[in-house]
Design a binder for these strands. Structure first.
Length: 951
RNA sequence: AGGCACGUACGUCAAUGGUAGACGGCUUCCCUUACAAGGAAGAGGUUGGGGGUUCGAGUCCCUCCGUGCCUACCA
């Protein structure tokens, strides 16, 4: 191996020419074994700046090839199980920030649990996305001048499959880039044969349980997509519209004498409507039964203008007397409420609008064939001519639109398949009431949102007039008999005839999605996957599909597997744009995760997203940038460790045996390491991603880089090869290795890249459960907190050293002492233990404050011309500044500090003087305040002396 | 219309009822041999207003102001 040297770079090949990781990386000689001719130039091919792209290129393929993502990698038969099924993205979709966010959370959990020794499965897959996909392919056809009807159903569906194999599933490639550790060997697609079988099985069972029925109902119809939609696929948009007041002439017959003659008004009843064109289908007028204005008219009839139809005035509770005129026109065929009124009063249904939102023959010859909006204008025109248009007012209301194409929904009466929800709903509600499952995180407000919705649930329209999807397994005989069966053969057998026609509709996409947690694991067979991985551990998803998907999975899982599909539901926040707006295609305000990956790296993006936790976050490049800087920090810290790694290798043993013999900073970092591990475990157990990230960030940057590396630098960079140097290097490498493990679930690429370069990193570091696997950080054990290694004594001693260094630096800065200038520092500490700590660390202190000399004594023995400061525990420091110090200024500085302390002391005294506080607050709290007061007392006393010394 | 959240430093967000923090930005100094994507030291807050409960409130309750989200069959 030959090292090319340039100024500060000696390169060794770790990648071959094609950029593939060379095999020597894993099993052969240590990667970094550098012995340049000149020791001073000892640096390897680690550039100063971290290049994420390089690390992102290689590791994923290797992990995947070596089966690291599959649960089978775990050799421990008694390992606990952790499983997640991915919310299947649409086959038409490409990765957006919401995916990146959710995938990050799922991958963090999966990688973490895997490192904890769990048998881990994260199952990937895609959804066939009925309407979206059909639209996408139809659009392609349109470019060729074709419609799906030109092809016919069979050819069209073939075409969709072709599209899928050619350009569908972009997102799976993008998931590899994300580093998602999903088991691709178990990838599923909701339209594949095995899942279609499950759909038919469930449909048949639900039908036989009378939970699925076919019926004629008023439904949401999209005139553009030509299909029915469920209530959840309809979106309400506020709209600035008009409210039209229409007069319907009363047909008074015998009662004509009861009405005082003379006033025109009294010959009419006025109704208010936002949709005048539907009046052509009116079959009644409704008023509230308690409305005195109309009491005498109940039971009479009106003559419907433009049609001459005689329609009754009925009394119905639904009508709000306060609104409009208190009289409502009733169009049972074109409005869900009117439909209900019609049912209650047995009113006929006159269909005046067809599936294309055009007027029918029944609307009258003048209107037939007209578009609904043209018809509206014409109706108004006619009413005006007849003097029957009382007034038109501006009115804001919400209008139903198709979620996908934004066309205004037309409520129509139609024969569809429905799923009866009450019994299923009760299963889910019982589960929550009895076992509090699933557990929502955050519990507030989602648990309540979920149960409230279930309580008010209505039947689910499950049929769709599409071609792409699971065709409904129902067949019709010539006589119109309905046969529901798993297969056509089964249907024929049951019908006793081959002359059957299958229902042409397909099922709502969400029907197959509802089965996802068990259909993907092999149900209804009692597969080992189903036994092992169901119920899954957690579902990670956005709040927008709690109803659409989460609730339905709970219902179907309970019904068919007899258990909840997941223990926990973690609801992520939403990534908003800079201005707090939702990212959307139409607004063009989306941030493309792939561009962010390119700019800042996958790891930086991931850890930034993880830090978002469950709250909404406004997107800000700066945030990713700061984590990019963090990645660079990790890179350079490792670079330093590797630069000084000769004769040393990672050895976890050195952090747990003989620890009490080690220097303060070593005992301290070991304690910090275990506290960090503890805090990260705790945070992840409660899905507190933000907290986990903060903990890791500060441990690595503040504790490890800013302090530990600086404190151990002297030993580690010593010129001579001594056992002491080797031991220090070994500790440093080992702490780094532990830190990389802690970070791995969040930043898989950089941690793997660096781990592979660590001397001593090999199969010996793998978790027991993966002991035969090829070495990779992702199969090492996640660091556990060993309580005995948390050392509060070492932490407080170290804190004293840190405080001393900080105060000395503070003085240097405030006194404008040149950074390069070495100065003497005098320390006085009455406390013996403290004095011993300072004395034992004078070398490090001197180095970090750039002191020429440090003297530690019982009392502060400094010349008059010194800048001084007090520390905790009554310790003091002084820096002699003969000729540099301005005595007035220095006194001022000390007085300012004293003021600060005095005001704090005053507050504490006040609180401690309050008998109720002392009485009622916990003892620890009171003692804590007392201790602080004592400390402040010591400090102010010391300041007094310092001021005296200056006078 | 109801329901539910949220208002904390210039910006984005944290903080089991116990001395208000982080990151970015800003000021001053430093290219100190891991890192200028860095180091050191700073400035910046009566936690939207008002009231209450409590020894103690950013945190719990009430009210007002402001902002979001969800659900809904007011024609």
């Amino acid at each position: 191996m030959r090292f090319a040297t340039n100024r500060n770079c000696i390169s060794i090949r770790s990648y071959d020419g094609d950029g593939i990781l060379a095999p020597l990386l894993y099993n052969e000689a240590p990667l970094i074994k550098l012995k340049a001719e000149n020791e001073d130039q000892l640096i390897m091919d680690i550039p100063k700046t971290y290049d994420p792209k390089q690390a992102e290129q290689h590791h994923y393929a290797r992990w995947e090839q070596q089966g690291c993502f599959a649960p089978e990698i775990n050799q421990d038969a008694s390992a606990p199980v952790f499983s997640i099924v991915i919310p299947p993205p649409n086959v038409t979709g490409s990765l957006h920030m919401g995916h990146a966010l959710q995938h990050t959370m799922m991958d963090v959990l999966t990688r973490y649990k895997r490192m904890c020794g769990y048998r881990t499965l994260w199952l990937p897959g895609m959804d066939h996305a009925g309407i979206s996909t059909q639209l996408m392919v139809s659009r392609e056809l349109k470019k060729e001048g074709l419609t799906r009807h030109d092809l016919g159903r069979e050819k069209f569906v073939e075409r969709v499959w072709q599209w899928k194999s050619e350009s569908g599933g972009q997102i799976t490639k993008q998931m590899r880039r994300e580093g998602a550790s999903v088991d691709w060997s178990r990838e599923r697609f909701t339209m594949e044969d095995s899942l279609s079988r499950v759909v038919r099985e469930v449909f048949v069972r639900l039908y036989r349980d009378e939970l699925i029925y076919r019926g004629k109902r008023i439904v949401n119809w999209c005139p553009t997509d030509q299909t029915v939609l469920s209530d959840l696929e309809v979106q309400k948009d506020p709209q600035q519209g008009k409210l039209y007041y229409l007069r319907y002439p009363l047909e008074l017959r015998g009662r004509v004498r009861e009405i005082r003659a003379g006033k025109l008004d009294e010959h009419y009843i006025t109704v208010a409507t936002t949709r005048p064109e539907t009046m052509l289908g009116d079959t009644g007028v409704a008023v509230n039964p308690t409305d005195s204005r109309y009491l005498s008219l109940i039971g009479t009839t009106v003559e419907l203008p433009l049609t001459g139809r005689k329609i009754p005035i009925v009394a119905d509770e639904f009508v709000d007397p306060e609104f409009g005129t208190g009289a409502v026109k009733v169009t049972p065929a074109h409005d869900p409420n009117d439909y209900d009124i019609g049912v209650r009063h047995n009113l006929p249904r006159v269909v005046v609008i067809d599936q294309h939102a055009r007027m029918t023959e029944d609307a009258g010859a003048e209107f037939a064939g007209l578009d609904r909006y043209k018809a509206r204008a014409k109706v108004i025109e006619k009413f005006e001519e007849l003097g029957l248009l009382e007034k038109v007012i501006d009115y804001e209301f919400s209008i139903s639109k198709c979620e996908r194409c934004k066309t205004v929904i037309e409520p129509l009466i139609s024969t569809q398949w429905f799923c009866r929800m009450e019994p299923l709903r009760d299963l889910a509600l019982d589960l929550m009431a009895r076992e509090k499952k699933p557990r929502f995180v955050p519990e507030v407000p989602y648990e309540k949102v979920y149960t409230n919705w279930l309580e008010n649930l209505r039947d689910w329209t499950i049929s769709r007039q599409l071609w792409w999807g699971h065709q409904i397994p129902a067949w019709y005989t010539k006589d119109g008999e309905v046969i529901v069966a798993r297969t056509e053969e089964e249907a024929r057998e049951e019908a006793g005839t081959d002359d059957l026609t299958q229902d042409s509709d397909v099922l709502d996409t969400w029907f197959s999605s509802a089965l996802w947690p068990f259909s993907t694991l092999g149900w209804p067979e009692k597969t080992s996957d189903l036994k092992t991985f169901y119920p899954t551990s957690v579902l990670v998803t956005g709040r927008d599909i709690i109803f659409l998907w989460v609730s339905r999975m709970v219902m179907m899982g309970s019904k068919f597997v007899g258990r909840e599909p997941f223990a926990d539901v973690f609801i992520t926040g939403t990534i908003l744009d800079k201005h707090g707006q939702r990212m959307s295609k139409t607004k063009m305000n989306g941030v493309d995760p792939l561009e962010v990956f390119d700019k800042y790296g996958v790891d930086a993006t991931r850890i930034m997203l993880a830090s978002a936790g469950s709250t909404d976050v406004r997107w800000n490049d700066k945030q990713v940038e700061s984590y990019r800087n963090f990645a660079n920090k990790i890179w350079n810290a490792a670079r330093f460790c590797l630069l000084n790694s000769e004769d040393a290798a990672v050895d976890p043993g050195v952090l747990s045996t003989g620890v009490s013999e080690l220097a303060l900073h070593d005992r301290w970092i070991i304690s910090r390491l275990h506290k960090t591990a503890r805090d990260v475990h705790d945070a992840l157990a409660g899905y507190q991603f933000h907290e986990a990230v903060q903990t890791l960030y500060h441990f690595f940057w503040d504790d490890f880089c800013d302090w530990y590396i600086e404190l151990t630098k002297m030993d580690v960079t010593a010129d001579e090869t001594t056992t002491q140097r080797t031991a220090a290097r070994t500790r440093l490498l080992t702490v780094l290795e532990q830190a990389l493990r802690l970070l791995h679930p969040f930043m898989p690429y950089i941690t793997e890249e660096l781990w592979q370069r660590l001397p001593g990193a090999g199969e010996n570091l793998l978790h027991q459960a993966y002991k035969d696997a090829a070495p990779t950080i992702m199969l090492t054990a996640y660091p556990e907190c060993i309580a005995e290694l948390i050392n509060e004594g070492a932490e407080s001693e170290m804190q004293a050293v840190i405080d001393l260094i900080s105060r000395a630096r503070n003085i240097r800065s405030e006194m404008n002492i040149k950074p390069g200038e070495r100065i003497p520092v005098i320390v006085g500490a009455a406390d013996e233990r403290l004095r011993a700590v300072f004395a034992a660390n004078t070398d490090q202190i001197a180095r970090l404050v750039r002191a020429s000399h440090i003297s530690v004594g019982e009392r502060l023995d400094a010349p008059r011309a010194s800048a001084r400061a007090v520390l905790g525990g009554g310790a003091e420091i002084a820096i002699p500044l003969e000729g540099l110090i301005d005595f007035d200024q220095e006194r001022e500085r000390l007085r300012k500090e004293q003021d600060k302390l005095n005001s704090e002391a005053a507050k504490l005294e006040l609180q401690l003087a309050n008998p109720q506080f002392v009485e009622r607050a916990p003892v620890e709290k009171v003692n804590e305040l007392k201790e602080r007061l004592t400390d402040i007392g010591q400090r102010t006393a010391a300041l007094d002396q310092m001021l005296e010394a200056l006078s």
